[in-house]
Each structure stands twice: as structure tokens, then as C-alpha cells.
Design a binder for these strands. Structure first.
Lengths: 207, 207
DNA sequence: GTCTATACTCCGATAGAC
DNA sequence: GTCTATCGGAGTATAGAC
């Protein structure tokens, strides 16, 4: 764990990805830089470029790991939520919030526009698997069509991402409100949205 | 409007704020810089510093205008939504999304952490007024307590911000889905959340 | 009130020593 | 496989001419 003045690490590549998560959690994508990651590990700013062609390829590796781990967290949360399909889908919102607050790597990084052109098959497979899992959870609620399932996933992710952003931007006085409490609120909000989606709704002016 | 090679503008200060909005709408806070704003107006990179002490003070002026205009947009939307308090509060979500997509200045900028220490009374008054308006709309739905009103505002903003982020990150294929259509979906989602908040809800595991 | 010019910092990325 | 050293570019901000 001590990386004060090391020359080689067993595998710098893996350490770079881990340190990138730490940096993202603390400083966000805004504060992320290859140089800062290297500094954090006590290696030179040139060292990362032996393992990643450029900044985008490092972020792509982070994206792949984040998609894999977030998917695992979602599957675990759905399992804990029991058999009700709506509760299972709603649990995604809480799992997303907790994962992103802990790791700093949310959809903004997993599906970052700047990674779209990076030809990383591993990342593409993980991000595809994540989306497939989300759509399966949505379909299980009884969506009649693929379109409906997509809308349900959008709703769930929107509310999860919205609450997550509010936490990250400091809207909840951090001292007084725990992450788990806010995750529960996000899950509850998602549950309400999912329940409402199954019923016809009165016309509302689009204001 | 032509700023190709101008020496002085009637008021560069106002022009800088306007150009900042344009830049934020196109490139986000990520792509914002004082230098880029100056470039956009055809003035030197030093010129802005005659009108704003530093980058944070320019962003603070943007924040103040954004809070003022967003509040006006919200009040207008609530007026168009009719007399039902729940519909009026829900309309905030759509108004927020449309305003932020158009101007690039959402809560991330209006309540940006990097502005917290900037002593700009004009901004503080506008941001306070915006929050007061939101709480009034929430209270009108029949919230028993201030705490409940805060939770309602949080829900509404979370869903609005969540949908807005999905649009900004390109989750909706821009070509096929109009901003107004997505604003309507955000409003509808907020309406469902507000309706659910008024009723007791079954216990859900916080997954 | 804006200009030119400059100092400083940080980042991305490369070259070559070891 | 990591180092030192360096280049080029961008951004923030200041100094001094006009």
C-alpha cells in the first residue's frame, strides 16, 4: 500500500486504475488528470503511458471496471430486494447512488462521450452487459414492449443520477444525512415512478 | 452583434456574461474558460479582468442571472400549469430542463461549490429567491412541515436534474427526441413523485 | 477600457538514459 | 518498465503602453 518512492509496482497498470477511482471519487472528472494519478502513486508522469496509450484509454479501463462492478452491485441489490419485479428495478436507484458516491464513477464516466471513439472491446462488453441487465430488470416488471422497458430504465436512472448529483454538489448537508438514507429515498422515488408507469395518467400541461 | 475586431463594446461586462452562457450551453462547465469567452467576443484575454476580479467572479455573475431567469421561467411555467398545486410544482421539472438545455446554466453552476466563498450579494439574493420560490410551490401542495416541503423540492429537482443530465450526456438520441418531449416526461415523472409523496408507502428494502 | 506582452502553472505526450 | 528531461499548448492573471 505504501507508494512513497517506489520504482516498480507488481502491476502499475492495475494500480493506475485503482488510483483513478480514488481521484474521481475525491475530485470528480473535472479534477482528473493522468499526471495527478501518477503523482498519487509516487511514479513519474511518464510512467502511465507505458500502460495506456493516452488519457482516454486509461479512462476507458476505469469505465470497464466501473460498469462491471456497478452491474454486480445492481444484481446484488435486486437479489436483496426480493421477488417483486418493481422493487427489484427500484433497488437499482439506491445501488447506483451508493456505488457512485463511493467510487466517483457513474454514467458520466461509464458512458462518457469522450470514450465513444476509444476502441476498447473490454469496455464495450461491460457497458453492454450493464445496459442489458437494466433492461432485463425493467422488462420483468411487465413492460409490454422494448420501448416501454427503455422508458422505465430512463426513469430509474434519471432519478438515481439526479439524487446522486445533488449529493455530489452538496445539496444535502453531508453531516446530517447519511448516504444510505438518501439511497433509500432515491429507491423510494424510483418505486413511485415505476408504480405510476403501470397506470394511465391524466394529461398534464408540459410546463 | 458583430464582434469581429471591436475595440470597445458599449458594455463589455454584459457581453461577457452573455457569451459565458453561450459557451456553457455549448461546452459545459468543463469547457468554460475566461480566455474562451474573451476569444468569442473578439477581445483580448486580459479584457475580462477589467470587469471581473477573476474567473469565479465572472461565474458568479452568470449564476446570479441564471437564478433570476430560471426563477422567472419557473413562475411562468407554474402559471401555465393552472391552479392545481401539485401540477404547478411538477411543472418546475420541465421548466428546469428546458432552461438548462437552452442556457447551459443549471444548479451545477447556480449553486456551484466554487462560488460559495465569492462574496457577491447580488448572486446570493437571486439564489435565495429561487429557493424560496421552490419551497413556496412545494408548501402549496399541502406539506405539513418545512421538512416535508424540502423533501418535495429535492424530489422535483432530482428528477429534473437527472433527466437534464441524461439529455446533456447524449442518452436520448438527439435527432429523434425533442427537448419538449423529454421536458414533458420529466414533468410527468415529477407529478407521479409528488402524488406518491402525499400517500403512505409500503416499506421497501433500501437496496 | 482595451491592447500587447509576459510570467506562471498545469496537463498531455514524447525521447532517450538506465 | 520506470526514470529524467523536455516540448507544446491552454489557462489564469498581471504589468504597462496607448
Amino acid at each position: 500500500m505504501s507508494a512513497e518512492r517506489g520504482y516498480h509496482h507488481g502491476s502499475l497498470r492495475a494500480a493506475l486504475v485503482r488510483a483513478s477511482f480514488d481521484l474521481l471519487a475525491e475530485c470528480g472528472l473535472h479534477g482528473f488528470s493522468v499526471a495527478a494519478v501518477a503523482r498519487r502513486l509516487g511514479v513519474s508522469s511518464a510512467a502511465p503511458y507505458r500502460h495506456f496509450a493516452d488519457r482516454a484509454h486509461l479512462l476507458s479501463a476505469v469505465s470497464a471496471d466501473a460498469a462491471r462492478d456497478l452491474r454486480a452491485a445492481i444484481i446484488a441489490a435486486a437479489g436483496a430486494a426480493g421477488p417483486d419485479p418493481a422493487a427489484r428495478l427500484a433497488s437499482v436507484a439506491g445501488a447506483y447512488l451508493r456505488y457512485v458516491i463511493r467510487t466517483g464513477a457513474g454514467f458520466q464516466i461509464i458512458y462518457a462521450a469522450e470514450l465513444y471513439a476509444v476502441p476498447d472491446d473490454a469496455r464495450r462488453e461491460q457497458t453492454r452487459a450493464l445496459m442489458t441487465t437494466l433492461l432485463e430488470l425493467a422488462t420483468a416488471t411487465g413492460s409490454a414492449s422494448y420501448q416501454e422497458a427503455v422508458l422505465l430504465v430512463e426513469e430509474t436512472i434519471a432519478v438515481a443520477h439526479g439524487y446522486t448529483s445533488l449529493v455530489q454538489d452538496g445539496f444535502f448537508s453531508r453531516a446530517s444525512t447519511s448516504v444510505d438514507a438518501i439511497a433509500a429515498r432515491a429507491t423510494e422515488a424510483a418505486r413511485a415512478l415505476i408504480a405510476a408507469a403501470g397506470r394511465p395518467s391524466p394529461p398534464t400541461s408540459p410546463g
